[in-house]
Design a protein around this nucleic acid. Structure first.
Lengths: 198, 198
DNA sequence: ATTATAAATACGACCGGTCATCTTGATTTT
DNA sequence: AAAATCAAGATGACCGGTCGTATTTATAAT
């Protein structure tokens, strides 16, 4: 037997490859053929696993955001760190990863928001869900930072989390064309290091 | 005679249509056929005017940003307004326009940065030039606002202009999936209304 | 001024290749 | 044996781009 979970393995590989290809080349720029060739899966199998490219993209989006949320939560659950320090460390890791990736790709969510965020309803909804999930985790962290007295309390944690998420998306775009991490660092320093502080 | 400047008219129409189509459907999502059909121009003519779709996109980018720069400069040159008020009014107009457009499209620069900003060198360069031109105008305005005493001077005008441009790109993405102008307004209130102020 | 020549532009049929999707037959599972 | 699952190729629409040619405009020669 080829293992009872071959299907699950295939799907998992497709989603992994989908994340990296969709991030790099966008929705319309990524062909099924290329994705399938990378994972060595026949075209027919793909349409057994997913109803369409659109549905595939939706699942790729969910698959994409989970590790980021887990990583951020891991920092926030570190008992040695106050919440603001945890968030700062998390973003420092993101920046290091992007530098290691020579500023290629950026964020799948941001890229797809720009490309099809207002033209494909299913993808738009998946993006909305993912962004809000991510925002909620940041909001929880900022809220704790407020209780810990490191972050101002005259602005709501949600408003700050939204601004941070949105600005982060913007600086990721800027990073791509400047091939530089300076925008990323300025974002963190300005918001986390100054504007949000008490 | 069909007018001696038919070629110029055609090119101008193509660029106008290119702005709206590329903004709405992205680079890979916009087909030449659709652009040509909209302006009633044969494909052969297109390739007389432009060497390639890529070159066309580069010219579309330059064509796109000019009105925004002129509009912002017009506000800044209004002798009745201090610079910060002029910038605020400019963004208020942008928000009104986006609301009137039911949050469709967003910014061509941001959309293309995400889609091909790290994969197409010619387009990337055109985007870099356009974004910096735009940033420079904002920087000039913020610099005057510093002299006028309405904006803090412990941060450089360029750094603030960059943060504003980048955050604006991010909130435009968020706007698209939330179908709401709230992110836009929060961006202006937070940065122009609070963080940048003395 | 008129003609001859050249250069530029207009035009759409057409190219190879790629797209997302469907159909069909093989294989596996029950 | 029946049903579900899967693999592989077929399908036609569409992609960006090229081609030869028709037409117009500009230049040169008489």
């Amino acid at each position: 037997m080829v293992s009872r979970t071959q299907k699950q393995t295939n799907i998992s590989n497709l989603l992994d490859q989908g994340v990296s290809l969709l991030t790099d080349k966008g929705y319309h720029g990524s062909g099924l053929k290329e994705i399938l060739a990378a994972v060595q899966i026949p075209k027919g199998s793909f349409y057994n696993y997913f109803d369409s490219k659109e549905v595939f993209a939706v699942e790729v989006i969910q698959h994409y955001i989970e590790p980021f949320i887990r990583q951020l939560e891991a920092h926030l659950q570190n008992p040695d760190l106050d919440a603001l320090t945890a968030i700062n460390q998390y973003f420092a890791e993101l920046i290091a990863a992007l530098e290691g990736n020579v500023f290629k790709g950026g964020c799948l969510l941001g890229n797809l928001m720009g490309e099809v965020g207002d033209s494909d309803e299913a993808i738009s909804q998946a993006l909305r869900v993912a962004v809000r999930q991510y925002r909620d985790v940041l909001q929880t962290g900022l809220s704790r930072a407020q209780q810990e007295g490191t972050v101002r309390t005259d602005k709501s944690a949600q408003e700050m989390a939204d601004l941070l998420v949105n600005t982060w998306q913007g600086v990721l775009l800027r990073m791509k064309i400047e091939q530089s991490s300076i925008p990323l660092k300025q974002c963190c320093e300005s918001l986390l290091g100054e504007y949000f502080r008490v």
